[in-house]
């Protein structure tokens, strides 16, 4: 199917969002955020794929051979770094939250209601 990868990407985003909305544990929530992000990886890389194309590395292949789109690979690389850093920061917040409140359950964090 020629749109399956895109549907997979959309599915990842939606499943991750479901996880975040219904999460009972902050670590689980942050992992679901990573799932949402991997949906964006999939859509980017799927867009860049070319049938019959090889990796855009010309050390062993002559320039001019059909390759996949390199820009989406660079975009995905940036996306990965961004996601990793946000995850690191969120996990630090989760660690500190557990240290201060003893819980990781969003339902029990009621400091900001109202």
């Amino acid at each position: 199917m020629s749109v399956l990868p895109y549907f997979v990407a959309a599915w990842l985003v939606l499943v991750g969002l479901y996880g975040i909305a219904t999460s009972r544990n902050l670590i689980h929530l942050i992992a679901c955020l990573s799932v949402v992000q991997s949906g964006t990886y999939v859509v980017l890389l799927a867009i860049g794929f070319r049938v019959g194309g090889t990796a855009p590395v010309f050390s062993d292949v002559a320039p001019g051979t059909p390759t996949v789109d390199p820009i989406v690979a660079a975009l995905t690389l940036t996306d990965v770094v961004v996601g990793a850093t946000v995850t690191a920061l969120l996990l630090a917040i989760a660690v500190q939250t557990h240290k201060r409140t003893g819980t990781l359950d969003p339902d029990e964090l009621r400091e900001l209601a109202g």
Binding site: L17, I20, A21, T22, S23, L109, R110, E111, L112, A113
Partner: peptide, 10 residues
């Protein structure tokens, strides 16, 4: 305005 992150994402 519950302060609950799951609500916000919903």
């Amino acid at each position: 305005h519950t302060g609950h992150v799951g609500d916000y994402v919903a």
